[in-house]
Design a binder for these strands. Sequence first.
RNA 1: GGCUCCAUGGUCAAGCGGUUAAGACGUCGCCCUCUCAAGGCGAAAUCAGGGGUUCGAUUCCCCUUGGAGCUACCA
Length: 485
Amino acid sequence: MTVRTRFAPSPTGYLHLGGLRTALYTYLFAKQNGGTFILRIEDTDQEREVEGAVELIYQSLRQAGLMYDEGPDVGGDFGPYIQTQRRDLYLPYAMQLVQSGAAYPCFCTKEALQERRDAATAKGEQWKYDKHCLTLSKEEALRRMQSGEPFVIRQNIPLTGVASFEDALYGHVEAPCDTLDDNVLIKQDGLPTYNFANVIDDHLMGITHVMRGTEYLSSTPKYNLLYEAFGWQAPVYIHLSPVMKDATRKLSKRYGDPSFEDLLAQGYVRDAVINFIALLGWSPGDEREFFTMDELVKAFDLKGLSKAPAIFNTEKLVWFNHEYISRMSLDEYLKMATPWFDAALAGKGIDYRRLAELMHTRTEVFDRVPDMVRFLSELPPYDLSIYTHPKMKTDSAIALTALRLARPVLEALPDFSEDALKEALMALAAQNGMKTGQIMWPVRIAISGLASTPGGATEIAYLLGKPETLRRIDLGIAKLQAAQL
RNA sequence: GGCUCCAUGGUCAAGCGGUUAAGACGUCGCCCUCUCAAGGCGAAAUCAGGGGUUCGAUUCCCCUUGGAGCUACCA
């Protein structure tokens, strides 16, 4: 049997990370089994559809490296792959169910339904559709349908017994039929609901394995009833636990949680995000934690899936990102970092290559880069207290001495290379019976204005160049003098 | 409320009847060091509670508690 899987999002906005993970696992499972990965757009709820969302799904999936073999924009033998483009094929299947008694037309208006629902809840009763229209004779029902009266088609759930299915992850799941409602299969607008469309399309598209969120777990027994009514074989189901933002809430755009696109825009590396997402709710069973897409395809295993929800932990993502960045070549890093350097340093003539070397292992997420390097463009205002550092054995008095000593040495330096700077400043410390740090710390503070910087005094002095370095030293001396008076 | 599902450190998690209960992130400490990173070493921290079953439960069963999902002409 050739494996065919599908990712079937609704175009209601951006691709959230839970959706991305579902797509990833679905893709991995198909590829690992030499199968076919399909994209299907579930747009039967026309009211919720968001403009441009379909294109965003195509784009996100491509950016994520999850290329589908069949789909709306790539074609395939089982199209169309957009449900609204399949609208006419659902009703005949529904009518087949009406004929066999597994479904029936219903003419109750939404208003009437709402009244009965309200009445029931007012009395503290459970509301379920009362099968009111099931009592209509087939002839009358048919006549009213043909007369143009609005109708829906409902699934006729048995009053007794249990519906069940076997989930590859959760095992046997069953629900008593009398707790199940007669759901609408075909809406008044002629389009199918998810409840119906997923069954019809998965069957028609030859889907062998369905991976989807656990929100469908409790209604899957109902879908199985449909498969039975048709005499079709149901696919293997693998329900996936949700990705949470904390113990009680799912990740959601409403609370400002980032989408995949957002993460990329913030300067997360694609492969780091994929690697992190793969491990959220899945474990390879050994201690590996770095995976390329190909390695994931090989390693993925249903047994490693977790049944419990997983909380999206940004700190670990940041760590992964930092790791992926560290493993880049310097050239790759420089290429990625340049726009972020430009954001703070454009036109300043800074040696980006040297800066890249310094920033390479210090970059966690690229959007933090501009703030880290901006001091090279402009000396930030700083408080004199940062000249004091017990471990370096410096305070503002020593700092003033150090800067006064360093000033002429730096000015006289013909070669402003890091080696020359280091040699000169260390020699200066030695000559004056000072510790290296007692020179280096004040110099670094004076030229950077920051308590911590990516790189030491000599590296920063080199990046700044002689004129700017001297200007900042003078500023530091002036500040310290002013404070002494 | 009803139905379904879930439950190992702060987080991701290994474990699948007998273990000193892995590993990673994060946290803390030490080393290195011209700051910060990086790197090296080390530490603290988990089986939700109660009943069973068993010679023996993190592991199997039940209950409680906590959480999630479904309960729409949304998916």
